[in-house]
């Protein structure tokens, strides 16, 4: 939504990470159950997406996907909602993993790094244009930079393309710097003198200028 108008002022007082004490827990459950990723979040009805809270989106996605995949049933969710709505002392059942949680904690506290370069010929300082494209489904190239020329500021290493399985072919990623005038025109008179915009892009989003 970079560059869209109409969302008003930033509510700088909205500082809590969640609108509910269970917000983080709902997000965690959605992540752990494999019910949600960026692709499923973005596949939501745009009107629903824009109307809903961040954690509502995670919850709605997880419910929908887990029911679609037959992991849960609507009846089962409905049953438990009735329980929790009417009995304020009721809580979800508690179980323990056979293998403990140390492995999970280790993976959560290990930083995921990019892989070594995959052999791109692009170099820092090269000018590149962001390809014009209209991909369906999940991708990580915002619309507002498509067609614009920028300069490669840093080569980051390689990774699989967004949404692809971990064992897919890797591509090189680059930090690309754009001049705000190339993105939006000269807006100095609107109180926005030229600035730099940095964004990370994979090679297949780029072409010669």
């Amino acid at each position: 939504m970079g560059g869209m108008h109409g969302f008003g002022a930033v509510d700088t007082d909205a500082v809590e990470s969640s609108h509910s004490p269970l917000g983080t827990r709902a997000q965690v459950i959605a992540m752990l159950s494999g019910g949600v990723n960026r692709a499923t979040l973005e596949a939501q009805d745009p009107a629903v997406y824009l109307r809903s809270h961040y954690h509502d989106r995670w919850l709605t996605c997880a419910e929908g996907r887990l029911v679609d995949e037959g992991v849960l049933s609507d009846d089962q969710l409905e049953h438990w909602r009735e329980v929790f709505e009417h009995d304020n002392a009721a809580t979800p059942p508690r179980t323990l993993s056979d293998k403990g949680v140390e492995g999970l904690i280790r993976s959560l506290t290990t930083t995921p790094l990019l892989h070594d370069p995959a052999g791109s010929l692009l170099l820092e300082g090269d000018r590149v244009r962001v390809r014009r494209m209209a991909p369906r489904g999940h991708h990580r190239c915002p619309r507002y930079i498509r067609g614009v020329v920028g300069v490669i500021e840093r080569a980051l290493g390689s990774d699989v393309l967004p949404g692809e399985p971990a064992d897919s072919q890797r591509e090189d990623y680059f930090t690309v710097r754009f001049d705000s005038v190339d993105l939006w025109g000269d807006r100095a008179r609107d109180g926005e003198p030229a600035y730099d915009l940095y964004i990370d892009l994979c090679e297949s989003y780029l072409e010669p200028p």
Binding site: H53, H55, E63, L72, S97
Partner: peptide
């Protein structure tokens, strides 16, 4: 929201998809 989040947790734990200690 809380009722829905708790219901999702209960159903996933009930079906053995997740364990409470992992959450």
């Amino acid at each position: 929201f809380e009722v829905r989040a708790m219901a999702l947790e209960a159903a996933l734990v009930e079906n053995g998809v997740l364990t409470t200690d992992a959450i």
